[in-house]
Design a protein around this nucleic acid. Structure first.
Lengths: 236, 236
DNA sequence: GACTGTCTGTGCGTTAACACACATACCCCG
DNA sequence: CGGGGTATGTGTGTTAACGCACAGACAGTC
């Protein structure tokens, strides 16, 4: 269950950028769905049956590693689409796609997505740009995961989540965050405790609120603005 | 200067997969070039003027971080193309592209590449698949960089380099490898020393030879076969 | 209002990789 | 053949994060 939902129309910005006539053509094949927290849209290696355009939900892309439950390498919100491999002519997902923020999305069958992918229209062009943006995001996260401290990465991750949920509060346990960041729960606890001590966030039993966005941004590494710039810019 | 060049035709496998007529159409805009070690094809943020199809050279993609000289997030050899953002409708490269293995490549202007990208031909389809494969590679490396030991990552990296150079020997200092792997030189020294002690590799003053491929693969993490599978498979 | 499960806090020993500081070894070139 | 530069080897602390082992603390339920 999500808490607070402040401002912000619940639209998928990628779809919203399409010219009207093209959007109308797509509309019949788009079905609104509710994504529930923890739902797995695809396991790594699964055949992709549907693509998803989140409106106020978040889908995490997790790379498989034998030792752990996976590491988040990308986050898909209302700026993008889950199931990009379909667009790229692949059937299977290389990563696990996990609903990390409950909310709504528009769903389309892979067959229909493939049809659209084979027309050189606006959707085609936008998905190309989005692929680029996602690649940039994954690249930057990679360096971030290697070099930056748990504290900085937690701050970045909270901000990215808030951006995509369009809300300053959400439900997520430390346990969950630890698996996204690829660190131990104790590590998250320490980092989150520090942030709370400085009144940047408040949390309790899986309910997190961002209290001071600006100062939280200062705690995050440069990766946050870098990734944000890419994600925001491509829709123009 | 490269040493040893055993077997293997020097072709770009992506281009080689194109149907004849399409390849002929491209040929006039493809110019063979020699890429020299250390050459920077693009800095992060640069406008991309040319795309490159390596034949027996390697281009490393490095994500920028303020603290370090960057971290390798992807490797482009004869299975791919450097300058993918052009294909995706972006002008600038999010990563630095550095020639990590000297050798030859085919070069094409971005303008021509863009023209081709706007035709729904085989090249378009192949570059789509390649984008997918690269995204998978970057995702997996990300997790690898987070979780696996320097030893395992060094082994993986040497194998990936050898695959793309089509040779079991090449010139690379520990200093250089350390910056690719995002670890200190001393760390590389320790890991490389261990591998040499077991007679898996031999090296001296920037000259490295792989002596026992099979056992070296055993030292690498699962990431190596995972990435290799993606890179090899997409060309079918 | 006790019971149970989940979420959070904390302490303690261990470890991989870090930073810095040299020592050595090899190659080329004048 | 004897420097000088580059590449490699090694030693001593330091640190961030790990693994494990519990101890509280709160929320819902019977």
């Amino acid at each position: 269950m999500r808490i607070q939902k402040i401002g912000g129309e619940a639209v998928n910005r990628l779809l919203a950028t399409l010219p009207k006539n093209e959007y109308k053509r797509l509309l019949p094949s788009l079905k609104p769905v509710n994504l529930t927290f923890g739902e797995v849209l695809y396991e790594a290696g699964d055949i992709i049956k549907h693509v998803y355009f989140p409106t106020d939900s978040i889908v995490s892309l997790l790379a498989a590693t034998p030792e752990t439950s996976g590491l988040e390498v990308g986050m898909v919100g209302n700026e993008g689409m889950a199931g990009l491999p379909v667009f790229m002519g692949a059937n299977v997902s290389p990563t696990r796609a996990l609903v990390q923020g409950a909310g709504s999305a528009m769903k389309m069958t892979s067959a229909n997505a493939r049809l659209e992918a084979n027309r050189l229209g606006s959707l085609h062009r936008l998905l190309h740009r989005y692929s680029h943006s996602l690649l940039a995001q994954v690249s930057q996260s990679s360096a971030c995961n290697r070099f930056h401290s748990v504290d900085a990465r937690l701050a970045r991750w909270l901000l990215m989540t808030a951006d995509r949920l369009n809300a300053d509060g959400f439900r997520l346990t430390q346990e969950f965050m630890s698996s996204m960041l690829g660190v131990r729960r104790e590590g998250v606890n320490k980092a989150a405790g520090a942030l709370q001590a400085e009144n940047l966030i408040r949390y309790s039993r899986g309910v997190i609120a961002i209290l001071d966005r600006r100062r939280l941004e200062a705690k995050a590494c440069v990766c946050y603005p870098l990734i944000k710039a890419d994600a925001d810019e491509y829709l123009n």
